[in-house]
Structures are given as C-alpha cells and as structure tokens.
C-alpha cells in the first residue's frame, strides 16, 4: 500500500478549509484507501490558523506568506521528510473533488507515470466547472508553448489537482518554481524525461476566496508563464 499525502496550500481559506478537510476524512471512512493530509497555512491573515488548531487538522504554519509555489513546495518537503510515496496537491477552496483521487494516482501506483494531472479538458463527457472563456484561451496558449518546448500536449496546464511520485517529491522538494508553479514545473518535469499523464476530473467552481490568478493580472501572467516555459531547462532549477 502506497503512503499518500494530500498537500493543501491555504491562504485565507477560513470559510472553506474545514469543509475541504471533512470531505477528505469522509472519503477515508468509506473509500478503499486512506490518505494523510497536511495543510500549509501560507501566512493567512484571517482565522485559518485558529480553525486548523481547533479542529486538530495537521498543518504547517508558514511564518510569512510565500505564495502558492513556496507553500506547495513546503508540502513536498514535508512529504519527503516523512517518506511518502505519493504527494497530491489539492485546493483548499472546494474546487477539487476527493473522489477522483484513486483514478488520479492510478498511473503512479502502476508506475506508468511520475506525475498525474487532474484535467478538466480531456474528457468532454464530464461536465463540471471548466473555467471562464478568457482563462480557457490562456490555458490553450500556454498549452501550445509547452507542446512547442517539450513535444508533449498538456491540456489543463494550470490544474492545481496533481499527484507526483517519490522521485518527483525528492526533486520538487529541492527545487520548485515559486511563481506560476503548475505550468512551469510540468514543463521542467517533461524536459527532465519524467512521464506526465492527464486524468479526466470534474472541478467545482471556487466556493470561497479568489483565484491566485486575478483578472487584471492575466496579461502579465501570460507573458511570464510563456517566457518561463520558453526558458525552462531540464534538471533542478534552484539548486
């Protein structure tokens, strides 16, 4: 049985973090497998920390806000220190559905892939939230550049519902992009010859909080991500 850790980065998620945690605990009660959870409280200024403490939710409080990349990497470091086989990034805002976890980690358990991305766009029959029209165009453009650079088509480039195996836990815990981490780390993993697979999942519309990708920052985001993808190199960037 593989040791699986769910990493939940949380920045000001007081309204949704408990529901998210409970949904995972409910899954543990009835599901075929059990997963551990670590919430990375990314220097929240609301009551997130208190809720985590009061409900005995396992968590790491970052001393200051490090942003999504720094928070997720903390989770990978925790997974590495505690010898987990698989780490799954999972949003704290209710966007992700825990019931897809078995199909998400299946390619890793059967050693077909090193990374599995929960994708909204590869099974057209699945409904659920598919992001706004402008954001979908952005995702397609990023997808085009990743294909150009790595020759591999990744459809849901910004999906934050992802699983990685032990090899990538080690690599990411040492070096992980601090900003725009999803598309960039995927590109770097592909360039380093790690196998990446996309698994169809449904997502919900964000219940609380705001996306880390704000509308007015979209153009800036796109330019940054595209340049990062173009300049991405194989191997560990931050070492």
């Amino acid at each position: 049985m593989k040791k699986v850790l769910i990493v939940i980065p949380a920045y000001n998620e007081e309204k949704s973090i408990l529901t998210t945690y409970k949904s995972i605990m409910d899954y543990n009660k009835k599901g075929k497998m059990k997963v551990d959870v670590i919430v990375i409280n990314d220097g929240s200024s609301d009551n997130t920390e208190k809720i985590l403490d009061d409900n005995n939710i396992p968590h790491v409080n970052l001393l200051t806000n490090l942003g999504i990349g720094g928070a997720v990497q903390t989770g990978y470091k925790y997974a590495y220190i505690n010898d987990y086989d698989i780490a799954v990034q999972f949003d704290g805002d209710g966007q992700h559905d825990i019931s897809y976890i078995e199909s998400l980690i299946e390619p890793l358990v059967n050693e077909r892939a090193d990374m599995a991305i929960g994708s909204r766009f590869i099974n057209k029959n699945l409904t659920g939230f598919k992001s706004s029209a402008t954001r979908r165009i952005g995702i397609k453009i990023v997808s085009f550049f990743i294909k150009l650079k790595t020759r591999k088509k990744i459809y849901d480039t910004t999906s934050g519902y992802r699983a990685i195996n032990k090899k990538l836990i080690k690599s990411f815990s040492k070096a992980y992009p601090l900003e725009y981490p999803e598309p960039i780390s995927t590109t770097e993993a592909l360039l380093s010859k790690y196998k990446v697979e996309e698994i169809p999942v449904e997502m919900n519309e964000r219940k609380q909080g705001r996306s880390s990708i704000h509308t007015w920052k979209n153009a800036y985001y796109m330019i940054n991500v595209i340049l990062n993808v173009i300049f991405a190199k194989k191997g560990d960037r931050n070492e």
């Binding site: 790491v60 409080n61 970052l62 200051t64 720094g70 903390t74 925790y78 220190i81 931050n238």
Partner: peptide, 20 residues
C-alpha cells in the same frame, strides 16, 4: 528571496513538528 524562502519553509516545518 530564494534563500529566505528555503529558510522559512525549513523553520516552519521544524516549528510545526516541535509543536505537535
């Protein structure tokens, strides 16, 4: 910034282990 991030992560993990 890179070094501070690493420092923050390591200290935060140690602190959470210590508290638990």
């Amino acid at each position: 910034k890179r070094r501070i991030t690493i420092l923050m992560q390591e200290v935060s993990i140690l602190k959470s282990q210590h508290n638990s």
